[in-house]
Amino acid sequence: MVDHKWIGKAYGPLKYEIGREKMREYASAAKDERPIYHDEEFSRGTKYGDIIGMPNFAAVYALRGAGMVLLDPEVKLNLAMLVHGAQEFEWFTVVKPNDIIVETGKIADIYEKGNLDFVVYEGEAKNQRDELVCRSRATFIIRGG
């Protein structure tokens, strides 16, 4: 069982600089070759003016706090028995190359159901203009309690 005293434990601020090739690498890994993610010339002719990050690229720039929870030596989650149970993303604006993202997050909840432990992380990512970019909520499940 995961100790409930870690509910509220905060992570960040975590700074992440959006890299052009990293955006492309993520989109390609997610089987998405649409030009707005890859092709500057095409993108210049759109309202965005440059390539934009695939929305799910938030898994990289907005979930680093969740990664810290998984490896937190105080919280001590059993990674071999851990699976990602659920995920929510809410987007408020797009990301472009060289954006500086700052993520802050916390363990929002810890609870049990049967022999499963649930750990919930909530994070918020803002850009260099202090605009909210993405809110994320990740639920992890540890089998075997």
Partner: peptide, 28 residues
């Protein structure tokens, strides 16, 4: 998150503009 990214791609394939995807959630 790979499966979820393919789900996001499926929605964006339909709407065309990735900036119009406002929320996405799922259970794995």
């Amino acid at each position: 998150l790979f499966n979820m990214a393919l789900l996001g791609k499926t929605v964006v394939d339909w709407i065309g503009d990735p900036g119009y995807l406002k929320k996405l959630s799922c259970q794995f």
